[in-house]
Structures are given as C-alpha cells and as structure tokens.
C-alpha cells in the first residue's frame, strides 16, 4: 500500500479544489475513461509547482482561492466550488470563461493551463485519445511519485 503523496506546495484544501476543477474540466468520457484522480492530477500539479517561480505559484494559489469562494461571493450558490455538484461547477467555470471581465477569464486560463495538461500527462489518458506517448522514455514525475510514496 503506497503512502499518501507528500504534497510540497498545495494545502489539503487546495488539493480538493484542484480535484474538483479537474473533474469538472475533464469528466470521464466514452473513450477517455481514466478519472483525474487516477491520473494523479493533483500530485502532478504540486510537483510542477515545486519548480515554478514564486509568482507563478502564488498566482495559481490565488486563482484556486478565488475559484473556491467565487460561487459564494457572487451569490451563485451557498456552497464553495469544491462542494458543488458537477453541473453547478461547470456553470461556474463557464461563467468565468465567457466573462467580459478580463480577470476571471485569465484566472481560469491559468488554472486550466496547469490542471488540464496534468491530466493528459498520464500515459493512459493520452493513449486513450489515440496519441502514442513519445519515445518510450520514463516519466520523471512517476519516478518522483514512486520514491515519495514508497510504491
């Protein structure tokens, strides 16, 4: 049984928002069935952020915070983003992506730019799109993950 992944950048509540965001952006489909949790999305994002500049990390965490509380502040719901049902989360994200407000659109862009590619970074997921993972060279993330969880 592997140990839980020791997150180095994200807090437990931030991990929850990343999971909720990834599930909303990339729900299981007809062919691409792997879940974001199965693709280790939050772990990959955390590993990526370890190497990101402080400003990048701060901006990402701020965006997570804004997303988490936005339904409450914008009176769309009485619940935080990560606790909303999937359909309501999708409405929330679409309201940001279609917003006339530059800030909302760009915060969402930043979140998606790190979270969605983390999902497709999993060989199984990218393989389900038909894509052949390149060159057969091992993943550095998986090596780090195995070492950190003792798997």
């Amino acid at each position: 049984m592997p140990h839980p992944y020791p997150y180095k950048v994200l807090s437990a509540s931030e991990v929850r928002v990343v999971h909720a965001l990834a599930e909303t952006c990339c729900p299981p489909g007809q062919i691409i069935k792997t879940t974001p949790a199965g693709a280790l999305v939050a772990e990959r994002v955390d590993w990526f952020l370890e190497a990101a500049p402080v400003e990048g990390r701060t901006a990402f965490r701020f965006a997570l915070l804004a997303l988490e509380w936005s339904p409450v502040f914008r009176l769309l719901a009485l619940s935080r983003f990560s606790r909303l049902p999937p359909e309501k989360r999708e409405v929330q994200l679409k309201s940001w992506s279609g917003s006339r407000v530059w800030l909302w659109r760009n915060l969402l862009k930043l979140l998606m730019a790190l979270v969605v590619p983390a999902y497709y970074a999993d060989d199984q997921v990218s393989g389900q799109t038909g894509f052949t993972p390149p060159g057969g060279r091992p993943s550095r993330f998986l090596a780090a993950w195995k070492e950190r969880t003792g798997s």
């Binding site: 990959r44 990526f48 993972p133 060279r137 993943s139």
Partner: peptide, 8 residues
C-alpha cells in the same frame, strides 16, 4: 534524458 513529455 530528454523524454519528450510536455508537462515535465
């Protein structure tokens, strides 16, 4: 060591 993986 180059592995062609975009995220990494």
């Amino acid at each position: 060591y180059l592995n062609g993986r975009d995220y990494e």
